[in-house]
Design a protein around this nucleic acid. Structure first.
Length: 610
RNA sequence: GCUCCUGUAGCACAAUGGAUAGUGCAUCGGUCUCCGAAGCCGGUGAUGUGGGUUCGAUUCCCGCCGGGAGCACCA
């Protein structure tokens, strides 16, 4: 069997993208040679702390423990049996109780840099042999409700979802981006009622408002309808009647509803454009409206669902939380007592559609973690349903994220207690970035400063969100976010701009092979540290795909930018010695390549100047 | 009440059971006649608490204390 991963031949030397995987394979081979029981030995290769080398393998300790051997003796036996390609790749040392430390040889670093010199080479290497390669993944994110402006609560799903989608696609998956908008439900009866009232009262004013700020106007109409329905049972009844007409296909109500959807999606797209988001599909709840009947039939038919208090529900007796025997039973309600569908109904229909129509291998839901119970019940239900109906079940995963909090530790709101509109938040970020750009780079033309401010401002919002573990609550702070210092978008973008500046000054194109010809071997400590960090892109990328946590990629890019900045300060690129210059040009070009690739995976744009 | 999540320096974060717990902000001190100082180099400072499992625990298990969230027809 061929080794996993793509190997490129450079000067007869095979170059692996994932060097950790190469070391893992080499250790397994050595273990076989040394007579270790394969089932008991897992190398456990990981990126090491810098003082220990580049990679460390911790698996000897567990192996020695299980087989009652001296761990250092086992480590020595393993090292002695290491295949030649690993010995050529790295220096190996046994440390502490039995850790194996691998320090990549400069020639191995140079070969990796030479082999991964273009965006195409990097992407091909990352996708080849990836565990997700060739799979179809649906990423379900953003998912706002129509007739409402997106607010700060919608930020994380959009930003994290886009990053996850890009990371998965770079890892070789065929990614389908699906915006599961909330475009169906009782609220539309109220909007239609209010719309018709406004039409009868002052048609011109209504049309003017809808022409100027259509989404805001529908949002206002919803509030009018909602307030009126709360105050007056007759209005509530009238709204219900409008909803029934809509659901039975009444042409007028359907036209109003369509218009609501269109203006909403148009407004959303303006924000998506800023965030670099483009959906393949916008299949909202209404799309599944005619697909829930089949779900009910099947669930009842295969004995998963049952009637309870008039509703169609699913209990999960094996789980104390969702068991019918619980103190306060909390079943999964798949059809309401009034016969109407709910969130659960359409989500089940959605799973079926993604299975049958998209042939999806995975469906990832980037949704607030507070909906964790819903997804747990949804997945349990889908599992039983698909098992009983003999269908293979795709991987279902809820990528939950925490709440955006203000600096007071409460969910982020405006001073008056309103939700902050996403549009306003992004504009504020751009405005703040603009002030910084004017201060730092006042010499640049007005139009360029505006463009820079947009990239820095929006990128700062994205990066601040992505750079911490998504499942934690996220404390929002303007000052920290737009800050120039620390682990921020500005720091990474600044590193990119400085690399680009070097190439401008030298009159070279980044990645132009001719500029790297005759490169001398890497020599200085900052050069080696930068090269090592570049090689670790493979590890960061692999970890990002495996964990679907973009912050591991953020952390890596920050460290890479730091390694570059240290190198930049210590070692001048524009030196006379052509061999030294060539090797430093190559380091700069790869830094640029990896930084830009990584930032793109996060959904950020980059700048040549800032 | 039940359940889930969570507690790491003044603040914000990191650490698939591994080595001396990393980083940023703040703070203190260096550093621009030299490719961009939005930078670089250095100092100070932390695992809520009590047990347990383990060669090894921020990580796993149990208790306690603190914070957040969810719990029948909303999404």
């Amino acid at each position: 069997m061929r080794a996993r991963g793509r190997a490129r031949l450079i000067g007869g030397m095979s170059v692996r993208f994932h060097l950790a995987a190469a070391i893992d394979a080499g250790l397994r081979q050595a273990a076989a040679t040394a007579g270790f029981e394969p089932a008991l030995f897992a190398p456990d290769v990981r990126v090491a702390a810098a003082q220990h080398g580049d990679y460390q393998a911790n698996g000897v300790l567990a192996f020695a423990k299980q087989t009652k051997q001296n761990p250092r003796a086992a480590a020595q036996a393993l090292v002695a049996a290491l295949p030649a390609d690993i010995a050529a790749l790295a220096d190996v040392a046994i440390a502490g109780p039995g850790f194996l430390n691998f320090t990549l040889k400069p020639a191995a670093l140079e070969a990796w840099l030479a082999a991964h010199g273009t965006p195409e080479a990097l992407a091909a290497a990352a996708a080849a042999g990836s565990p997700v390669s060739g799979q179809t993944w649906v990423v379900d994110y953003s998912s706002p409700n129509t007739a409402k402006q997106m607010h700060v609560g919608h930020l994380r799903s959009a930003v994290i979802g886009e990053a996850v989608a890009r990371i998965a696609a770079f890892g070789g998956a065929r990614v389908i981006r699906d915006n599961h908008i909330g475009d169906w439900g009782t609220s539309f009866g109220k909007i239609i009622w209010a719309y018709k009232q406004a039409l009868a009262t002052d048609r011109a004013a209504l049309e003017a408002a809808l022409a100027a700020t259509p989404l805001e106007e529908f949002e206002r109409l919803y509030k009018v309808g909602n307030t009126a329905a709360d105050a007056d049972p007759a209005v509530l009844e009238a709204s219900r009647a409008e909803l029934v007409k809509l659901q039975s296909g009444d042409p007028e109500n359907t036209a109003i509803w369509r218009r609501i959807g269109e203006v909403s999606v148009d407004a959303f797209q303006k924000i998506y454009d800023l965030l670099g988001i483009h959906f393949d599909h916008t299949l909202g709840e209404s799309f599944y409206n005619d697909k829930v009947g089949r779900v009910y039939e099947e669930l009842v038919g295969c004995g998963v669902a049952e009637e309870s208090q008039g509703a169609l529900v699913v209990f999960h007796d094996e789980n104390p939380r969702y068991s019918r025997h619980a103190e306060r039973p909390n079943p999964f309600i798949v059809r309401k007592a009034d016969g109407a569908a709910n969130y659960a109904s359409t989500d089940l229909a959605t799973i079926l559609y993604r299975s049958e129509h998209f042939k999806a291998d995975a469906s990832l839901y980037v949704v607030d973690k507070r909906q964790g119970d819903h997804f747990e019940q949804l997945f349990l239900t889908a599992k039983k349903w698909f098992e009983k109906s003999g269908r293979p079940l795709m991987r279902l995963e809820h990528l939950g994220f925490g709440t955006v909090l203000g600096e007071d530790g409460r969910p982020l709101k405006t001073r008056s207690g309103e939700n902050i509109k996403l549009k306003d938040l992004l504009q504020e970020a751009v405005d703040r970035a603009r002030r910084l750009v004017d201060e730092k780079s006042g010499e640049l033309p007005e139009a360029e400063r505006a463009a820079i401010a947009e990239v820095v401002g929006v990128g700062s919002v994205q990066y601040a969100d992505l750079s911490q573990n998504r499942s934690s609550d996220y404390t929002f702070s303007w000052d920290k976010m737009i800050s120039l210092e620390g682990n921020t978008a500005a720091y990474l973008l600044y590193a990119v701009a400085r690399v680009r500046s070097i190439f401008r000054k030298l009159g070279l194109q980044p990645g132009d092979a001719a500029s790297e010809v005759g490169a001398a071997p890497l020599e200085t400590a900052p050069e080696l540290a930068l090269a090592r960090k570049l090689v670790q892109f493979a590890d960061a990328q692999g970890a990002a795909v495996a964990t679907l946590r973009p912050h591991v990629l953020c952390l890596y890019l920050y460290e890479l930018a730091g390694a570059f900045s240290a190198f930049y300060t210590a070692d001048k690129v524009a030196v006379d010695d052509p061999a030294v210059r060539a090797r430093r040009v190559r380091l700069c070009a790869r830094t640029l390549l990896v930084l830009e690739t990584g930032l793109q995976l996060l959904g950020l744009r980059t700048l040549a100047r800032m």
